[in-house]
Amino acid sequence: MPAGQTVSAPDGHDRAVRLWLFVIAVLVFAMVVVGGATRLTDSGLSITEWRPLMGAIPPLSHDQWLVEFAKYRASPQYDAINRGMSLGNFQFIYWWEWAHRLLGRLIGAAMLLPWLFFVAKGWLKGRLAAVTFGIGLMIGLQGLVGWLMVASGLNPGMVAVAPLKLMFHLTLACVIFAALIWVALGLGAQRERSPAPVRLRAGGIAILVLLFVQIMLGALVAGNDAGMRFNDWPLMDGALVPPLEQLFDKPSTLEAFVDSLALTQFNHRLGAYALFALAIWHMLSARGTGFAKGAVVQLGLVTAQAIIGITALVLVVPLWAGLLHQAFAVLVLGHVVAHVHGLTRAPRMPEQPAAQVLSAA
């Protein structure tokens, strides 16, 4: 350890709470991955009812399967794209959605029951108890948002969930994941760090904000199945910038930003370029500081995610590539949150005026 640095280790109670939060974060990560598989296999509308408790029990007999299948056959999606589906194929999509909902129930229980235990033991109190309770409320809200999303796909004329609701569902999951990581890191060993330049803090926060925007744009791409079109790169349908009439092919500009296959994918591409450029600038800014390694890893992860995204696009989004792209996005988010946590927990070092820098040189 460099001279002058000290470490403040957490007590046993903090370590237990920290481990609990990290376990919940892993479960949320798994939830996002299974949710991605549910989306890519068009399984999300296979269960047409929301039964928070009894829905945890799947069909246990042939007759019960026939009842569930009959409910699905009454849905617009079955009538439009799955007419003639066999019971076996229905069971395949049913199990994906059931697993997704079961994970949601597991996360809720894994959040609530230990929280009650830790509060009763006095290990959670004050601000930490309030913050973790707030995260628990977001997890509960996520269940409601998930059902509202599914319900949007069961409306007459719909064959998939509304892209805007899918975007909110995925974004809220990522907010929960980021909050769990942030709070857990705050309970870890506190090492004294060198001061973080203001520009470095600002750059790290900007990357975090842009990453959330990029995840939201990616959800719109997924919600519209826009990755199934325009599968060339770096051009898009043979052009660097598609024609405006192709980008804005909806009745209103707002609808185009949400529902246009061309514009949602184009915006997602632009977001990736901006994120990559910002990560490079941040890495260069971090040279010579104690945060250089984190910035280099961050750029490496952003680059890998871009490569995965391009691969998924040109291969017309096979299941493995789509899942890898979504899962890796959450991993990138985890590192960016940890990097920003380190930047903002370090002492603030004000920027030197340019005249002082020149005179020092």
Rank of each mutant, 00 (worst) to 15 (best):
G35R: 07
G322K: 04
S75K: 07
G108M: 07
L220A: 07
A179T: 05
L53E: 11
G334P: 14
N89P: 07
A70M: 00
A184P: 06
L278P: 14
H100G: 05
A130I: 04
G309Q: 08
N224A: 09
G288E: 03
M236P: 15
G108H: 00
A277G: 15
Q352L: 11
G290Y: 01
P197T: 02
V302S: 10
F291S: 13
A292T: 07
G204S: 12
A3N: 07
V67D: 15
Y78R: 00
N155I: 03
F177P: 14
L187R: 04
S152P: 12
N224V: 04
P114F: 00
L116H: 04
M283S: 11
W65I: 10
G35N: 08
L235N: 11
S359D: 13
G334V: 06
A346H: 02
P353W: 04
L53C: 10
L144A: 13
G204H: 10
A321Y: 00
W182S: 09
A346K: 00
A74L: 11
R73C: 13
P243Y: 07
L313C: 11
S194P: 08
A226E: 03
I93E: 09
A9H: 09
Q190Y: 02
H282S: 08
G300M: 01
M349I: 01
Q298F: 01
F29V: 05
M349V: 02
S152W: 04
A74R: 10
S75R: 06
G271S: 12
I280F: 10
L319E: 12
V221Q: 08
